Simulated assay, not measured.
Amino acid sequence: MDTTKATTMKVVHNSRAGVPSVPGKTMGVFTGDVWLDQVIRQDNMSVVNVNFTPCSRTNWHRHEGGQLLRVTAGSGWICEKGDQPQRIAVGDVIWCPPGSHHWHGADDGSYMVHEAVTLGKIDWYEQVTDEEYAAKK
């Protein structure tokens, strides 16, 4: 058995004391009030908890290596370009394959929190219009 340690384990403790959330407005890629809490960022992977206020959402975007979303609170929507928006809620897990051009965000009357595991770089595009957001109804 080879006991050579090839990598170093990283532990992220369940404490963010003194670490402020980042307002999404500073990034220019969200509509509405969104807050981001970085969990870990390493190599070509990041894990972020994203808190969406009602009606807030991402711009259209895609991920080089794909993205895994896990809804942990509230409800919202996700939409791939050319498709109808789909409702998502607590416990749902969504896989956006590499290159999937999509948006996600909170429902009209609900906050939504999801954990986002992103692989590779993100390409950001235009805002989701109010008409595109309203198509979910």
Rank of each mutant, 00 (worst) to 15 (best):
D37K: 14
L119K: 09
A73S: 14
D107W: 03
A6I: 10
G76W: 01
V90R: 10
V113G: 10
I94Q: 04
G99I: 04
W77I: 01
H102I: 04
S15Q: 14
G65S: 05
G99H: 03
T118C: 13
T4W: 02
W77Q: 00
W60N: 03
K10E: 11
T3K: 07
G28N: 04
V93F: 03
V47K: 06
C55H: 14
T129N: 02
G74W: 00
A17V: 11
S15G: 09
E80L: 07
W60Y: 10
A6L: 12
V11I: 13
Q86R: 15
T7S: 05
S56R: 01
Q84A: 14
L119P: 03
V113Q: 14
G82C: 07
H61K: 01
V50A: 08
P20S: 13
H13Y: 10
V29C: 11
M1C: 04
L36E: 07
G32P: 00
G74D: 00
G18M: 00
K121C: 10
V48K: 04
I94H: 02
R62W: 12
F30E: 06
I78A: 09
I78C: 12
V117N: 05
L36K: 14
V48M: 09
K121M: 11
P85S: 06
H13F: 07
V47L: 14
G99C: 04
H61G: 03
W60P: 06
S100K: 09
W60M: 10
D43Q: 13
M1N: 07
P20H: 08
G32H: 00
R16H: 12
D43A: 15
I94M: 07
V113M: 11
H102E: 02
M27W: 11
V71G: 00
I88S: 02
N49P: 05
Y125L: 12
H101Y: 13
L119F: 15
T8V: 09
T8K: 12
V117P: 02
V11G: 00
D123K: 10
A116C: 03
V117R: 07
G120T: 01
A134H: 08
T31E: 11
V47A: 15
N51F: 15
L36M: 15
V39K: 15
N49E: 14
Y133Q: 06
V29E: 02
V90M: 06
W60F: 10
P23M: 05
V19F: 09
Q67H: 01
V113N: 14
V47F: 12
T58K: 00
D37N: 15
P20K: 13
D130R: 10
